[in-house]
């Protein structure tokens, strides 16, 4: 039972960054901007929030008010991710540059900048930023005592505030996209900007908003990934930004489908780490380092799903095309 609890809890933990970042990508692409820079945005968000956590740890505020500090760190991740994403918005909206190339530049910039800044702040050779241990939510945090059982293991093995926020943000994202005036206008800009413009919707502003939101969610996702991946930030998010992009496509640019896709992907990813201890999975005993088979699996399965669903897959029609107000 405890293995099951471990698997579920780890799945949720790794699902959160995928979910958040893919939702971020969804906002950007729904507004018409292809956001290949998610990887870089995650790194910047994680970098700044982790540095912020360290600072709070040093100042003593963090250990004293751990969850308040954690909340502030999430805000920092969101804001820095968003500000960084504005570089993409500027390039693709104002300057009408190639969105893929602009995003590639940001992806290259972010990890290098993270290393440079980490060095500059922590001193030479210090390439990791340790995450304070108080960041996790434990039974003590909540002041409850739960018996050692499935639920205890499932809930408190690795429970962070980011998980709670992710649930909130998912609901908010879905509601904003489908139920609000803003969501309607945003989607119209990704599908038919000329139509949106002809009824007085400011396409430029909407695209900025889409990219900005993707930066916020991407930044928080970066922090969530770092919390999931271990005890320290190491100037990388290991390709999760790109995976989130695939999850977004796999989820057909729709919140609920993205939720399913991120769960699916995270589950396959976690299965690989637990492949040895799950009885019914084949063990490939004749093969050395068979964990790689399981590591490959989520990517192969995603690929197969993408091919099978390619007929139904429907990207926002105007994504990737700079909108020029002068040409109608």
């Amino acid at each position: 039972m405890s293995i099951l609890a471990d698997i579920f809890s780890a799945t949720i933990l790794f699902m959160i960054p995928l979910l958040l970042v893919a939702l971020g990508g969804m906002f950007s692409e729904r507004s018409g901007v292809v956001n290949i820079a998610l990887e870089g945005i995650m790194i910047i968000g994680a970098l700044c929030s982790c540095l912020f956590l360290r600072a709070l740890d040093d100042s003593g505020f963090g250990p004293a008010h751990p969850q308040t500090a954690m909340f502030l760190a999430i805000v920092v991740a969101a804001l820095t991710g968003a500000v960084f994403a504005l570089l993409l918005a500027f390039a693709s909206v104002n300057l009408k540059a190639d969105q893929t190339i602009g995003g590639t530049a940001l992806n290259m910039f972010a990890p290098a900048f993270a290393i440079v800044l980490t060095w500059a702040i922590q001193g030479q050779g210090q390439t990791t930023i340790l995450i304070p241990t108080w960041s996790r939510i434990t039974q003590e945090t909540l002041g409850v005592a739960v018996k050692q059982n499935f639920w205890q293991a499932f809930l408190f093995k690795s429970f962070y505030q980011t998980t709670i926020w992710a649930v909130f943000l998912f609901v908010i994202a879905a509601v904003v996209l489908y139920k609000t005036r803003f969501g309607l206008r945003l989607r119209s800009c990704g599908e038919h900007p000329q139509a949106a413009d002809s009824v007085g919707v400011n396409v430029y502003r909407m695209r900025y908003a889409g990219v900005f939101i993707s930066g916020m969610l991407g930044g928080i996702g970066g922090l969530a990934y770092t919390l999931a991946a271990g005890s320290a930030f190491q100037s990388t998010v290991a390709g999760y930004g790109f995976l989130a992009l695939a999850v977004m496509i796999f989820g057909n640019w729709k919140p609920l489908n993205i939720l399913g896709a991120s769960l699916f992907f995270a589950l396959f990813k976690i299965l690989s780490s637990y492949s040895g201890s799950i009885p019914f999975l084949p063990k490939f005993e004749n093969i050395k380092a068979s964990e790689y088979i399981y590591l490959m699996l989520p990517y192969i399965v995603t690929m197969i799903v993408l091919i099978l669903t390619s007929k139904k897959s429907r990207a926002p029609k105007a994504e990737g095309i700079p909108y020029d107000k002068g040409r109608r």
Partner: peptide, 25 residues
């Protein structure tokens, strides 16, 4: 026509002059 193909008829009609309360359609 300047219509968003994946929107409903209603959504296309109200786009730009949406009745709303606190931002909600």
């Amino acid at each position: 026509f300047k219509l968003v193909e994946v929107f409903t008829v209603l959504e296309n009609i109200i786009l730009g002059v949406e009745p709303q309360k606190m931002g909600f359609l």
